[in-house]
């Protein structure tokens, strides 16, 4: 046998091996996060309604949105994330607070304002929940700073990408980390080609509806959604 025979034989590799998008699903679904946030809010609101007599004197005693921060701190027991909320709550400690917008709180998009009533200066602490930047199912065009184009297809757990010029590409799975960064980005890990690969990225919304992905090596790509096409 010659090396050329070997090269030809490799050319007959089974298609499932050539085409494998690998990888067991590892992405954390954001649905439970949203549900957990909603559940926490429900607990908070419920606590306010059920135990108003336990609420210490506050500047707005007639307001049903009042609560102690001890109640809010309980949120930590119900959700481990997003990190921003947990951190802010721990800063507030056990003071009495007033949450003006709690009835209208929309975890996907609202600014959740906590007013610390025990503080004479009435510091307002804000926990901001931006709409989590995630990829929709379908095809995206990704353009980097030099104008190089790649195409990405996303499904439930990841997807695949191809070089815009050569058509070469790889499969990947995508794991969203449950982190809202101060700059509005969400951390994610792309497992490109293998579960062993960990390519970190920060994903952010752009005002024009595109997504900005900052890769761990400093490269940036703008992702524009092209639709649900498979091709």
């Amino acid at each position: 046998m010659k090396h050329e025979d070997l090269f030809r034989a490799i050319g007959e590799t089974d298609e499932d091996l050539l085409d494998e998008n690998v990888i067991p699903a590892r992405r954390r679904n954001i649905f439970p996060i949203v549900v957990s946030i909603a559940a926490c809010i429900a607990v908070v609101v419920g606590t306010v309604w059920i135990m108003p007599q336990k609420i210490p004197t506050a500047k707005n005693p007639e307001d049903t949105d009042r609560m102690t921060i001890e109640t809010i701190a309980g949120i930590e027991e119900y959700q481990a994330s997003p990190t921003a909320m947990t951190e802010t709550v721990s800063q507030i400690s056990t003071e009495t607070a007033y949450i003006p917008e709690i009835d209208d709180f929309e975890p996907e998009q609202d600014v959740f304002t906590i007013e610390d009533l025990s503080d004479e200066t009435e510091d307002v602490k804000q926990i901001h929940y931006p709409e989590m930047p995630v990829f929709m199912h379908g095809k995206y065009q990704a353009v980097d700073e030099s104008g190089e184009v790649r195409y990405f297809w996303f499904d439930d757990d990841g997807g695949r990408f191809e070089d815009g010029e050569t058509g070469m590409g790889l499969g990947f799975t995508l794991e969203y980390l449950e982190v809202y960064n101060e700059d509005g980005t969400t951390d994610a890990i792309f497992h490109i080609g293998s579960v062993d690969d960990n390519t970190f990225a920060k994903i952010a919304h752009n005002e024009n509806g595109t997504l900005l992905v900052k890769w761990q090596d400093g490269a940036k790509e703008i992702f524009t959604y092209l639709g649900e096409s498979d091709e």
Partner: peptide, 28 residues
Amino acid sequence: LKEIINAFLRTLPVRERQIFLRRYFYAE
């Protein structure tokens, strides 16, 4: 030979397999 190579490739960890195929299937 084809079957032998396919069987061999299936024994490899995914990343090694993909790197191997990038090099020796696609000649990248």
